[in-house]
Design a protein around this nucleic acid. Structure first.
Length: 285
DNA sequence: AAAAGTGCCAACCGCCGAGTT
DNA sequence: CAACTCGGCGGTTGGCACTTT
C-alpha cells in the first residue's frame, strides 16, 4: 500500500514563495476556495505541489493569521497545554486562535523549551535571565503556572529516562521496569495528576485577571480527565461531582503543590494507593 | 571589516489515518 | 478487502539575519 508522492518532482518549484505566487494562491482561494489541494496548483497556475500550497496558505496567507510576538497569556497557554498534550502542536494550536501549529512548534523549540531547560532545577531561585522580560515576570509570578512548569520539567525528564530504561530493559530482555520515572508518569496520568491539572486551572482562574481566557482550561482538563479515566467520566459533567472529586484528592494535591523541586520520593508511597493507577499501567506493564 | 558562530523560522519530508474506489 | 488518494501532522532542515570574535 505504498504512498505515491503528492506531486511530480519535475517542474515543481521549491523553496521560498514569491509575492507573485502568494498573490496567485490568495486570488484563487478567494474565488474558488481550497477544495482539492492536489489540483489547486495546476488550476491556479502555480508550479508548486499541493502540499506546499496548503502549507503556505495555512501557515502564512490565511487572513485570520495572527501576527506579532506571543503574548504572556499565549505563552502560559502553550506551556500548560504542552504539559497536558505533549507535542501535539495542532491540538495546541486549536486553542490559540490565529496561531498555527508550525508557529507554536517553532516558538516552543526556540524559546520556551530552552527557557524551561535553563530554569530546569532552579525555578524557585529566580535567575536573572529568566525574568528579563515583562511577560516572563508575569507568568513567573503566577504560582499555578510555575507549578505546571515544574511538572512539565519533571514529565519531560521522566519520559527521557523511561525511554532509556525501556531501551536498556529490551537489551537485557527484562520484561518489567518499576522505576522512579515511570512512577512519576503514572502519577501524571493518574487521578491525582488529573485533579492537579484541574486545581491548577482553578488557581489560574482566580490568580489571573483574565479569568475568562483561562476558563477554557477547565473544560480542557475535564475533557482530558474524562478521556483518560473512566472513573472521572461519570462526574465530569456535573459541578458537584467534580468538586467531590477534587476534595477527595485535596490533601494529596496540597502535598504535590508544595512539593520541593525534584523530590520524587513522595511518589513512592503513593504507588501503594489504589487510586494511583494511571493508564500507563496498561501501557507499560 | 570580515569570518565564524548562533538563532530563528519558513518550508520540506515522510508517515499516518480516514475516506474512496 | 486491498489498493489507492488525500489531508493533516510532527520532525527536521536550509538559509537568512543577527551577534560575537
Amino acid at each position: 500500500m505504498g504512498r505515491s508522492p503528492c506531486c511530480d518532482k519535475d517542474g515543481v518549484r521549491k523553496g521560498a514563495w514569491t509575492p507573485e505566487e502568494d498573490e496567485l494562491l490568495v486570488q484563487y482561494i478567494k474565488k474558488h476556495g481550497c477544495g482539492n489541494w492536489r489540483t489547486l496548483p495546476k488550476n491556479a497556475g502555480l508550479l508548486r505541489c499541493g502540499k506546499s500550497c496548503r502549507l503556505r496558505w495555512i501557515n502564512y496567507l490565511r487572513p485570520d493569521i495572527k501576527r506579532g510576538p506571543f503574548t504572556s497569556e499565549e505563552e502560559g497557554k502553550i506551556i500548560q497545554l504542552h504539559g497536558m498534550l505533549g507535542n501535539r502542536w495542532a491540538a495546541i494550536a486549536s486553542h490559540l486562535p490565529g496561531r498555527t501549529d508550525n508557529e507554536i512548534k517553532n516558538y516552543w523549540n526556540t524559546h520556551l523549551k530552552k527557557r524551561l531547560c535553563r530554569s530546569g532545577h532552579s525555578l524557585e531561585a529566580k535567575e536573572p535571565s529568566f525574568g528579563s522580560h515583562r511577560s516572563e515576570e508575569k507568568y513567573e509570578s503566577s504560582s499555578s503556572v510555575r507549578h505546571v512548569i515544574q511538572w512539565e520539567n519533571a514529565r519531560v525528564e521522566a519520559e527521557k529516562r523511561l525511554s532509556m530504561e525501556l531501551e536498556s530493559s529490551c537489551l537485557n530482555h527484562s520484561s518489567k521496569t518499576n522505576t522512579h520515572s515511570d512512577c512519576f508518569l503514572r502519577l501524571w496520568h493518574s487521578e491525582v495528576g488529573q485533579s492537579f491539572r484541574m486545581i491548577t486551572v482553578k488557581k489560574a482562574e482566580s490568580d489571573s485577571p483574565t479569568s475568562q481566557a483561562n476558563s477554557f482550561f477547565a473544560s480542557m482538563a475535564q475533557e482530558q480527565a474524562s478521556s483518560c479515566n473512566p472513573k472521572v467520566q461519570g462526574t465530569a459533567g456535573s459541578d458537584s461531582g467534580s468538586h467531590e472529586f477534587l476534595d477527595a484528592s485535596d490533601s494529596a494535591l496540597k502535598l504535590l503543590l508544595d512539593m520541593p523541586d525534584g523530590n520524587l520520593g513522595f511518589f513512592e508511597g503513593l504507588e501503594q494507593n489504589e487510586n494511583f493507577q494511571g493508564p500507563l499501567h496498561d501501557r507499560y506493564d
